[in-house]
């Protein structure tokens, strides 16, 4: 059995439908990861709560996201949509990574900056909002961008909890038509079509922010 171009073209719309779900899950999950990760990075600096938060997210970071997905999917009441579960789990998982990025960004702000803030008696909100975060953000944009691409490439896991993303579609097509070649190859190409240009953009950003 060989490559069947006509069949390949006929399944493109279905796969693109899946790709839309994939991108949806990535974008929303990423926003969750960005916000939650920042909260985690700040909470880790708090006495008593900090170490607990660290251990919990270290556990999340070093265990497979696939197992976490299956686990939450099995526990959640059937009324919760699989896509919601998928986005939440991906978001929390990646918060463990973004928190580390924020942490290194915050620690990368020179000690003298904190001291200058104290010398000017700036209120905490200004210290964080006007001095520390603006400087930290510049350093964290490239690594955070890399995690957006990583997350995009982790969304196929959602197929394991019946979310109709691209991999789910490909598998469904394969089972139905007894042909897997075209669906999986196209899925792979679609992934490349999104992630390679994104990676190029991220590297540009990286160079631009490194230059300043």
């Amino acid at each position: 059995m060989n490559w069947d171009t006509e069949f390949a073209i006929s399944i493109i719309p279905q796969l693109l439908q899946g790709l839309v779900v994939t991108i949806q899950a990535t974008v929303i999950g990423y926003v969750v990861a960005l916000i939650l990760g920042l909260a985690v990075a700040i909470l880790r600096r708090v006495d008593y709560i900090g170490p607990v938060v660290f251990v919990v997210f270290e556990f999340i970071r070093t265990t497979p996201v696939l197992v976490q997905l299956l686990f939450v999917f099995a526990l959640a009441p059937p009324t919760v949509a699989p896509l919601t579960i998928g986005i939440s789990v991906l978001g929390v998982h990646y918060a463990a990574y973004t928190a580390e990025v924020y942490r290194s960004g915050i620690e990368g702000v020179a000690k003298g900056q904190w001291e200058a803030c104290r010398a000017l008696s700036l209120p905490p909100l200004r210290v964080w909002g006007a001095v520390v975060m603006p400087q930290a953000i510049r350093k964290v944009i490239p690594p955070l961008g890399n995690y957006l691409i990583s997350m995009f490439k982790d969304t196929p896991y959602l197929f394991a909890i019946t979310v109709p993303e691209m991999m789910f579609m490909a598998k469904a097509i394969g089972t139905e038509a007894f042909r897997s070649m075209e669906a999986y190859t196209l899925a792979g190409l679609f992934f490349l079509a999104v992630s390679v240009p994104s990676a190029v953009i991220i590297r540009r950003l990286e160079r631009r922010y490194a230059a300043v």
């Binding site: 490439k153 991999m167 490909a170 897997s180 999986y184 899925a187 490349l192 390679v196 990676a199």
Partner: peptide, 15 residues
């Protein structure tokens, strides 16, 4: 780097 490991896996296993 651009293709998810899962896609590669299914490609090797099924395609």
């Amino acid at each position: 780097r651009g293709v998810a490991a899962l896609v590669l896996l299914f490609w090797f296993a099924y395609a």
